[in-house]
């Protein structure tokens, strides 16, 4: 039996908003530890991995590991009907081997909405994701997630919006991280300096650099990743020319959402 309860729908609504535009299906793995979700976009360029530990839920009962593929577009539609303070219950029973039930209950008027989702095949997930040692990354940048989202939006408005292949070059050099893109008739660079934590202790931009690094990424994907900002105040971007970049948002004390993408390589 699987039975989970969250007294505020917000967390799950935000998770779906953070992944459903880029990823159409996801694999949900429930175990004693918690929920582990993985999804790949249809081009197999980006991977998202989410962990929500059992403690993130107000009630968590999972007596047998359960893995299910679910359609994220359908789920996002259902969750858009849920209010932020609705109580969510997630239930699956062993004899219903191919359905999971999500129930939204309004604490104010007692209205209950019930959605049954059929399991679907997933896009080749889950994959094995090793934890790479910190030392393998050439640079790490931590900044407010709202700032990262703003940077992506600025770059998108400059780059030709009709061009799906706008590339952003992220360069880290000492105490600066630069975001560079080329539009039709010029270029745009956004420079972020490491900020003094004394001034704004809650919103630092921190740069750890082992060596200078300059990598190219697809802006369209970065824009989607920046939607993780509803889940965390800070984003950490780990960069390496040999490893997939990781855009990580920590979810309070109870988990994380990590987006992985390889840099584009000059041919």
């Amino acid at each position: 039996i699987l039975e989970l309860r969250l007294v505020q729908a917000t967390l799950f609504k935000n998770v779906l908003e953070a992944i459903s535009d880029l990823f159409s299906k996801a694999n949900f793995d429930f175990s004693g530890t918690g929920l582990e979700l993985q999804a790949m976009d249809t081009s197999h360029v980006a991977l998202v991995a989410l962990l929500l530990r059992a403690e993130a839920f107000n009630h968590y009962l999972c007596d047998r590991d359960l893995s299910m593929g679910l359609n994220l577009a359908d789920m996002a539609k259902a969750f858009r009907c849920a209010n932020n303070d609705d109580i969510i219950t997630i239930k699956a029973e062993e004899d219903w081997s191919d359905t999971v039930t999500f129930t939204f209950e309004s604490p104010e008027d007692g209205e209950i909405s019930i959605f049954d989702f059929d399991f679907v095949g997933t896009n080749g997930v889950p994959l094995e994701i090793p934890e790479f040692p910190e030392s393998e990354y050439q640079a790490k940048v931590r900044m407010p997630s709202a700032k990262f989202m703003r940077i992506c939006k600025k770059l998108s408005s400059f780059g030709d919006s009709g061009d799906r292949d706008t590339v952003v070059i992220i360069s880290v050099d000492k105490e600066c991280v630069n975001f560079f893109t080329r539009g039709k008739t010029g270029t745009s660079t956004i420079v972020c300096r490491q900020t003094q934590t004394v001034d704004k202790p809650k919103e630092p931009t921190l740069i750890e650099m082992k060596e200078q690094v300059s990598l190219a990424f697809d802006l369209r994907y970065m824009n989607s990743f920046s939607k993780g900002s509803t889940l965390s105040d800070q984003v950490t971007i780990s960069l390496s020319s040999n490893l997939p970049a990781v855009f990580e948002y920590k979810i309070a004390e109870t988990g994380y959402i990590r987006y992985y993408m390889l840099p584009r390589i000059e041919e």
């Binding site: 081009s43 197999h44 360029v45 980006a46 094995e128 697809d218 993408m261 390889l262 390589i265």
Partner: peptide, 14 residues
């Protein structure tokens, strides 16, 4: 031209 590799080139099925 910059080529985009698939993430599956790096991570594999368990």
């Amino acid at each position: 031209v910059r080529k985009q590799s698939q993430i599956t080139a790096f991570f594999s099925s368990p």
